[in-house]
Structure formats: C-alpha cells, structure tokens
C-alpha cells in the first residue's frame, strides 16, 4: 500500500436488520496516516460501520477496502493489517493480562518467544507491568481498556479502529489513551475513531465525518464543519423580559432567520451571515424600535451546534419556530 492508496474506503455500504437500515449508503474515505473521527449519536450506525470494515459483520451491499484489501473477498489480509478496540474491552477475563497478550500474539502467528517479549513490552508501555499476572477480570475499567488497546497493538496495525475508546473512562485514563493514539499516528498508523464526544473528535481527528441514520451526512475538518453549520450567532440580552417579543420581531426581520428566546435570562439569539453589518443593522433597528439592550455578543458556533445543525436540522428548526410563536 503506497501513501496514495486510502487506508479505508467504504462505498455505499448497506446493512439492514428487518426494517431498520443500520447502514444506508455509507461512504467514507480515510487517507493513509490520518485520523478520521466518526461522530454521531447512539444508533447512528458508527459501530455497525466499524464492525463491517473490521470484517466482523457481513454487509448487504456496497464495497469496502481496508489497507488496500477488499473486506469481503480478502478478510484474512484485512485482519492481519488492522487492530480493533471496541466499546467493551475484548479481553479474556479469566486469563492474566500477560496471558491475554501472549495468546493474542500467538493467534497473530508470532513465535512463542516473540509473543512473550512483545507482551512484556506492551505491559510496560501501558503501565500494566505490576498487574501483569492478575486475571484481567480484576482490572479497573481504565486498566482493562488499556489492556484492550495493547492487544490491538501487538503487531503495529496499519489501520486501527477505535470504537468509542474512552466511553466510561475517567479524564486521566482518557488523556493517557489519547496520548497513546497520538504516538501511534506519529508512527504512521491510520486511525478510524468513533465517538459521541465532540471534544474527542476535536482533539484527535484530522477530519470528522458526521454520521446520522446510517450514512455520512457531513465531512470536513472541525473548523470546516463549524463554518458550514452556518452561521455565527448574535446574542442579545434585553433589560426587561417584556421587551423580548418586540426585540424578536425586529431581529427576525433584520437577520432574516428564526430567533431563539430564553426568558429566564432575557436573551435572544439568531444566526447571522455577515457578522459586522448584521451587528450594526440589528443594533440600529433596536434603537429605532426603542428596545433597551443590556448586552450583545457575536460568537462562532461550537462543534456541538454544528453537530446539531448537521444531524438534527429539522427538529432543531421546528423547536426554534415553536419558541418564537410562543
């Protein structure tokens, strides 16, 4: 595989369970050596996509190549090139940490001695040397997840799938895992990461694919996605909640977009396209309408808002309109 060949290509993957389309034309391209974040809510199809790409799940339609090999026709070559760390630590809980790593090394067809040496190296690297001979069932959640990640790295994978790797971890363990992922990437491993945490995608991923209802609905860098979700927002605080309806009418007319109200803090907000002009126009219009303004701020959308915008557009829009009407 040369560097022009993408590490992961999914082309129109489909997977149906009864009437549910878990994957519904899932397209994805991950360049070699990069980190791709699959971002989406529970049930969006992220895990299904990873399981399909990691040869664990047969899909009903479409094509996929991982590390240059066809997932359906050449699954064994794919398996030799990948590592997979799932949501739930996939280790043998009866065996010790060391026995686990030696076992997985031997099943990767390393000679016994090499498998043992590699197990020791990984136990050291992941801070598990002290617990190496305890059964994995006695490990804490963070230790188990580290063992699980170590098990994916016995031979350095060309493509590493991380399915919600930090779900349920405390911040310290999470940071440790992030560091481990970064150093792998520095050595040239391609990482496909699924996460529900925007922060995680923001921290680790070069590019983010937003997944919803079994397909990728948006793709880009974190900054691009923020920009694409529109629009900056203007937020205004009026002196008195009684002024809100009048202010909302004015802002809606000038900004040409639905307005969100929060009576508790006497705030209204609206998306704006041309920041400075909009700011000047809205303030002038409010002064003309004699609505006293206490505070005003312009801000860029968070990735959270981008996400909401990209996956739950209609629902969010409907709620905003309902609030304006109220």
């Amino acid at each position: 595989m040369n560097h022009e060949t993408p590490a992961v290509v999914a082309d129109g993957l489909r997977k149906t369970y009864g009437r549910t389309h878990a994957l519904d034309g899932f397209d994805l391209t991950v360049p070699a050596g990069s980190v791709c974040g699959l971002l989406g809510p529970n049930g969006a199809g992220k895990t299904t996509a990873v399981r399909a790409l990691a040869t664990l799940l047969r899909f009903d339609g479409g094509h996929a190549r991982v590390a240059g090999y066809d997932v359906t026709r050449d699954p064994e070559r794919v398996r030799a090139a990948i590592g997979l760390t799932g949501q739930y630590a996939a280790v043998d809980e009866t065996l010790s940490g060391r026995q686990n790593l030696v076992l997985f090394g031997r099943l990767r067809h390393l000679p016994v001695r090499v498998a043992r040496r590699r197990a020791d190296e990984l136990l050291d690297q992941f801070g598990l040397a002290d617990a190496a001979d305890r059964s994995a069932g006695t490990y804490s959640g963070g230790m188990r997840r580290r063992l699980d990640l170590a098990a994916s790295l016995i031979t350095r994978p060309r493509v590493l799938f991380l399915d919600e790797p930090t779900t349920g971890l405390d911040p310290r363990s999470r940071n440790g895992l992030w560091d481990a992922v970064r150093s792998l990437v520095a050595e040239g491993t391609t990482v496909l990461l699924t996460t529900q945490y925007l922060e995680e995608a923001d921290q680790l991923a070069d590019r983010i694919s937003v997944v919803d209802a079994g397909r990728v609905v948006a793709e880009g860098t974190s900054a691009e996605l923020k920009a694409r979700s529109g629009a900056d927002r203007i937020e205004l605080v009026v002196r008195d909640a009684g002024h809100l309806p009048a202010a909302a009418r004015v802002v809606e007319r000038v900004a040409g977009a639905p307005v969100t109200l929060d009576r508790e803090i006497r705030q209204l907000s609206a998306p704006v396209t041309d920041r400075i002009t909009a700011l000047a126009d809205i303030l002038r219009a409010l002064r003309d309408a004699e609505v006293p303004v206490e505070d005003v701020v312009l801000r860029r959308p968070t990735l959270d808002e981008a996400f909401l915008h990209l996956t739950g557009h209609r629902a969010a829009g409907a709620r905003e309109r309902a609030e304006v009407a109220a």
């Binding site: 990691a54 030799a80 630590a89």
Partner: peptide, 11 residues
C-alpha cells in the same frame, strides 16, 4: 462477551 470479537478480528 466482547472477547469473541477480538478473536474474530485476528488473522
């Protein structure tokens, strides 16, 4: 358990 996924993802 998850361990079967590990086995099935190995060559």
């Amino acid at each position: 358990r998850g361990v079967v996924d590990r086995f099935r993802s190995l060559p």
